[in-house]
Amino acid sequence: MTRLMRTSELTKRPVVTMAGDDIAQVKDIVYAADGGSVHGFTLAGRGLFAGPLSSVLPWSSVSALGADAVMVADESILADEGGFSGEGSSSDPARRDVLGSRVLTDTGTDLGQVVDVIVQVQGARDQCDVVGYEIESSEALDNAGQRVLMPLPDTMAASGEHLIVPASATKFVRHDLAGFGAAVDDFRQHLEGRD
């Protein structure tokens, strides 16, 4: 089963064990160094006055990412901050935060600003892929000022300032998550066909 979600919806989602206890909630999302997948989550305690937790939740320990909860086997899977091993999270501050970056085509057109990240989960134990961005579109697109969904290639160049996407990505823009998964597949197939 494949499902797509906006990462902005993930924050504050409870982390629940299979025994039914809520042990934490998602504070922030940590992306893998290449930005292509979710590496794990930082956590906060549950409740109004609970602060951030020092423990983190690596993606490998997530049993399922659902619409209402992040499911884990039990409490023991919470790792220390060292749980994100060196090959993982990017510490380069320029690449840490993709929100707010401008999306630029390889032909030099500014398509808009990133406002959200779309991830795709295939099933339990699978990678949590970053498949697209929600952008506030610029005049270059038909519906300037609106939010649109832009599929991403498997790999791309990114700095804190710009993200470079192929110009053909504009043909695969969608307006809602329904059907966006197919658009991502079409787009990636299109890129493979071109190379």
């Binding site: 409870p14 629940v16 064990t17 299979m18 025994a19 039914g20 206890d21 809520d22 399922a64 909860a69």
Partner: peptide, 16 residues
């Protein structure tokens, strides 16, 4: 039925 805890009752997801 898998678990009954402070937050929720957890049941195995229905097969697709």
């Amino acid at each position: 039925l898998i678990g009954v805890g402070s937050f929720a009752v957890v049941v195995k997801a229905a097969p697709d």
